[in-house]
């Protein structure tokens, strides 16, 4: 584990890959069924599938919800990295317990509660993956604003996607400076590997010194430009909010999507009472 980690942080971990995955996740799938939904409907949908499974113990219902959110996740064409993170997340929370119990021949009474817990975690995670990854960030920001989230949060979401590629490139270049000019300890032995890992962690820390100064320069231009472009004026203006949200329109398809989800949930409920 230690070895893998030490090799992963700087050497194999490609910033380009990460950047492209995040951007792909945000904008690469804006022509899917999920991305076309009204963000308000999706957020309400998320409110249901992100909360209700916690309160339910019924296996059939959970399984039903899980299948539904799995379908929506597939429909949203989420980037591979996010799915991987989802897998790791579920596994590290409860999945590994389930696996261990099963391997050591635990009986149904031991497995069942774990399975239910795992299903809950997986369903809720996938629901969030569907909504937050499947939706275009700007539409998501507008949706959140409609529900009364502070304007600054919705600005932050859009801005984060704008700044991320630039920040990553800068960070990558700073790290490259360290990589080309630095002299990391040899890492053939175990002790060397530990030292190497410590070195890398230290470098990442150090890298934030130039990054902070460089980003400070950028932030100044950005905030000055925001000032000129009326950001603060808009933040306090009701009329602007209305214009922004005017872009949100419920379509018949949104209704169909909601009704289909409802139908599915009702069907699993029925099935649950019959079994």
């Amino acid at each position: 584990m230690m070895q893998k980690l030490s090799e992963n942080i700087l050497d194999k971990f490609s910033m380009d890959f990460l950047r492209s995955q995040v951007l792909k996740n945000a904008y690469g799938n804006n022509d899917t069924v999920i991305a076309a939904r009204d963000p308000r409907v999706l957020l309400a949908w998320y409110l249901f599938f992100g909360l209700v499974p916690w309160f339910v113990q019924d296996m059939t219902f959970l399984l039903g919800c899980f299948v539904l959110v799995m379908i929506t996740t597939l429909l949203a064409r989420v980037a591979g990295l996010v799915l991987l993170l989802f897998g790791v997340g579920v596994f590290s929370q409860t999945g590994y317990l389930l696996l261990v119990t099963w391997l050591f021949g635990g009986d149904a009474s031991a497995i069942m509660p774990l399975l239910i817990l795992t299903l809950k975690v997986a369903t809720i995670s996938l629901a969030s993956v569907t909504v937050f990854s499947g939706l275009d960030p700007d539409r998501l920001a507008n949706g959140l604003m409609w529900y009364g989230c502070p304007e600054r949060l919705s600005f932050s979401i859009s801005y984060a996607y704008r700044i991320l590629p630039m920040l990553m490139e800068e960070f990558q270049n700073v790290l490259l400076s360290y990589r080309l000019r630095g002299n990391p300890p040899a890492h053939d032995t175990f002790a060397g590997k530990v030292r190497y890992l410590a070195y890398q962690v230290k470098i990442i820390m150090y890298a934030f010194y130039p990054l902070m100064l460089n980003t400070a320069k950028r932030s100044r231009t950005t905030v000055e430009a925001l000032e000129i472009r009326g950001y603060r004026y808009a933040a306090t203006n009701k009329e602007v909010r209305r214009i922004k949200l005017a872009g949100l329109r419920l379509t018949w398809d949104d209704g169909i999507f909601a009704a289909l989800s409802l139908l599915w949930v009702a069907a699993t409920l029925l099935l649950g009472t019959l079994v």
Partner: peptide, 16 residues
């Protein structure tokens, strides 16, 4: 906010 936006929303790991 940064943590919420970059690691939770961007990577779809929003935990409600």
């Amino acid at each position: 906010t940064g943590e919420l936006v970059f690691s939770e929303i961007m990577l779809g790991q929003f935990g409600g």
